[in-house]
Simulated assay, not measured.
Amino acid sequence: MTLTPRGIGLLVGGAVLLVAGFRFGYPELSLLGTVAAIALACALAHAAWRPRLDVSRTADPDRVARGDAATMTLTVRNDSRLRAANLLAHDRCGARDVPVPLLRLRPGRDTTVSYPVPTHRRGVVPVGPLRVTRRDVLGLISSARSHGQPTRVRVHPRIHPLAAVPAGVARSLDGRFDRVPHGTITFDSLREYVVGDELRRVHWRTSARIGELMVREDLDTSLPRIVVLLDNRTSAHPDVVDGVAETFESACEAAASVIAAAVREDLPVTLLMVDDDRVDGDHLDRLTEAALRPGPRERDDRLRTATTRLRQQRLGDTLVFLTGPGARAELGLLGALRGPYPAVLVGVLHGGGDAGSGAGAVEGMLVIDAADGAEFAAEWDGSRAW
């Protein structure tokens, strides 16, 4: 609750009139000062009334690909029993305010407003809360309050369909060789027994030790395990315009395309980032929240640290590294992973400013140079490696 410039002027003027009227014996001035005080008191009483509004939002959909349509539906209900709501309201959607008309909203009634959510940029779009501003008739006091819980709409990177993914064998640039010479099923983990599990899969020794039936989980090692490593270093994507590095956006689209293709083929896939060691959470949601991270001004060893971690953990057999033009000089670090990862693919998204030569082999790795995500998908499908 704040005084407007008009309210401040009236407050100062009324105080001067009251002091002058009582000081010098002018009842007319005292009367004018009293009228000003009464007007301010009425404005204060008007602003003190809090409307009882029930606000709900529905996003359709709440997860959307960049550039696709998304709609937010806002429903406002007046829960007051006596007074109608005649308010000026705005709903916050990203960086803009959406006007919401609440004119003569009678008690027990509701109104619904729908508006598009901006999806031209990848990221999380915060929506809400509803901001209600009230002013008295004379415009002396303004009060603003928030109603309803905010929500979020996730704008995922675009997904460009890929026709093929590595299928069951590790690949070299001039042929294929099987990576599972002694069978494909191996022990992975233990879990609690649930109704429907086969008794032959019960691990009796562990079950006897802990007092609960435990079941073996086996892993088919003939299935390729794909690891996607996204380079989120500012140094790898130096060209930033209006806070957005288009090469990084293209790298996110390429990562989303590889992940979607792996999920389509029911292949296990892991998403990692150079400057983030988390592996949990929905992959597309993590790509939505991914942001460039600046590094130290001196020596930047984050990529070396990430490759060392990959070598030690050996999370899969096919590694897809997606980076920008600023990391070309560091691609040799990926060549050291050819041992634990028989298939290594590097995607360099250059945005058209540092054009490469399409797809090619560099130090035993398959390197795809592409301007954006769509060109990456075309080069991927045109590769003879699969």
Rank of each mutant, 00 (worst) to 15 (best):
R216E: 12
V35T: 08
G108I: 00
M214P: 08
E253T: 02
Q312I: 03
L303D: 12
D275Q: 09
R145G: 06
G353F: 04
A378E: 07
L223H: 10
M1A: 13
H90A: 14
R63L: 13
D280T: 08
I185G: 01
R83V: 13
G128N: 04
G295C: 12
S250K: 01
A47P: 05
R96A: 15
L284Y: 10
E379L: 11
L345Q: 05
V76H: 03
N78T: 08
R77Q: 08
L284W: 04
L29E: 09
G332L: 11
R106Y: 12
A59N: 05
T2Y: 12
R200C: 10
G25K: 05
T186A: 14
A37N: 04
A41Q: 06
S250A: 15
D79C: 03
R81L: 09
S207I: 13
V98R: 00
A95V: 07
R104N: 14
E379Y: 04
E265D: 00
A65Q: 11
P61Q: 05
D218Q: 08
R109A: 15
L334F: 08
R264P: 02
L29D: 07
V35E: 09
V16P: 03
V274A: 02
T34Y: 14
V202H: 07
D369W: 00
R205Y: 10
E28T: 07
S56M: 00
A164E: 11
R134L: 14
A45Q: 02
G243Y: 01
R77S: 03
R66D: 11
A291Y: 03
H46E: 07
S142V: 05
R384A: 15
R158L: 09
L105N: 02
Y26S: 15
R328Y: 15
R131P: 11
L333N: 08
A254W: 00
G358Q: 03
T184L: 10
E289S: 15
A236Y: 02
R92C: 13
E249P: 00
A37P: 04
E330S: 11
A290K: 07
A167Q: 07
A336T: 15
M214W: 06
V194L: 09
R179I: 13
A256F: 04
P116F: 14
S357M: 03
L271A: 01
R338S: 15
R63T: 14
A41Y: 04
D97G: 09
R311H: 12
W204C: 10
S172Y: 06
A89T: 04
V113R: 01
G347R: 00
P224D: 15
D317C: 09
P342N: 07
L11C: 15
A236G: 08
G25E: 11
D54A: 05
F24Y: 15
G211I: 05
